[in-house]
């Protein structure tokens, strides 16, 4: 497959990634069946991850890695899990991207990487206080479109 990111874009992302603090581990879940965007997504993420040594990529398959998919609550493809990595320890911050992060979402993808890398949600103190009080699962799905 040809490269998806051109040199100019790579240069810009590389520049933005100088702001990365802690390592970020991306887990890609794909599927060989019924997944129109899996190949492009995997390729795109591979190119992005290659732009910083603070980033790593793990490629998994929903069908052949069901227990890992279950652990990360993944049942659709492509899904990207943006986790923290400290030494060899993977920390799941509950951040997921479903579908190919292209168009506007590409920017969100890069920003999400930076946020997970900062290990700081950047939220207001009142929001943080509220979130600490949550004692049952909360599942948020933010629907977006690339245009």
């Amino acid at each position: 497959m040809d490269k998806l990111l051109n040199e100019n874009v790579e240069k810009q992302i590389h520049e933005v990634f100088t702001g990365l603090k802690e390592p970020v581990h991306v887990i890609f879940f794909g599927s060989k069946e019924n997944c129109e965007y899996c190949d492009d997504t995997r390729q795109l993420v591979k190119e992005v991850v290659a732009l910083s040594d603070k980033l790593s990529l793990e490629v998994r398959d929903l069908q052949t890695d069901p227990s890992l998919a279950g652990q990360y609550n993944v049942d659709k493809t492509p899904t990207l899990v943006l986790a923290g990595k400290d030494s060899e320890k993977i920390t799941d911050y509950g951040v997921r991207l479903l579908g190919i992060p292209s168009g506007h979402e590409f920017t969100s993808f890069i920003q999400d990487i930076l946020l997970v890398s900062s290990r700081d949600s950047g939220l207001a103190p009142a929001t943080r206080e509220f979130l600490k009080t949550i004692n049952k699962p909360v599942h948020l799905q933010v629907f977006v479109t690339p245009t």
């Binding site: 997970v116 949600s121 979130l131 909360v138």
Partner: peptide, 15 residues
């Protein structure tokens, strides 16, 4: 980024 503050919170951006 609400998900980062509490392991019980999962946030997905869905295309």
């Amino acid at each position: 980024m609400l998900a980062m503050e509490n392991p019980l919170v999962q946030a997905e951006m869905v295309e």
